[in-house]
Computed example of a mutant assay.
Amino acid sequence: MLPTQEEQVLDEASITLRVELRADTLLGPGKAALLQGIRETGSIAAAGRRMGMSYKRAWYLIDTLNGAFHEPLVTASKGGKTGGGAQLTPTGAAILDGYRRMEAAASEAVAGELAHLSTLLKPMT
Rank of each mutant, 00 (worst) to 15 (best):
S54N: 06
A94R: 12
I15C: 09
A23I: 12
V19S: 00
K78H: 06
L26H: 14
I62M: 04
Q8M: 13
T82M: 09
R39Q: 05
M124V: 12
I15P: 02
D11Y: 11
A45H: 04
L61A: 03
I44M: 11
A23G: 10
T75L: 15
Y60G: 07
W59E: 03
V19D: 01
N66T: 11
R50T: 00
L121H: 05
G79D: 02
V19T: 01
L96Y: 12
K122D: 11
T91P: 01
V19F: 01
A46S: 09
T16Q: 13
Y60K: 12
L73Q: 02
R22A: 08
T64R: 10
L121N: 05
G48L: 04
D63S: 15
L88Y: 13
R57E: 06
G52E: 05
G83V: 06
E12F: 15
T75K: 14
L96G: 03
G37K: 11
D24Q: 12
T89H: 01
A86Q: 07
T89V: 07
L27F: 15
Q8D: 09
L73H: 00
G52C: 06
D11L: 07
W59M: 14
S77H: 14
K31F: 02
A111G: 00
V9A: 04
A32G: 01
M51W: 07
A23E: 15
V9L: 11
W59K: 09
G83I: 04
L26E: 14
M53R: 02
P123S: 07
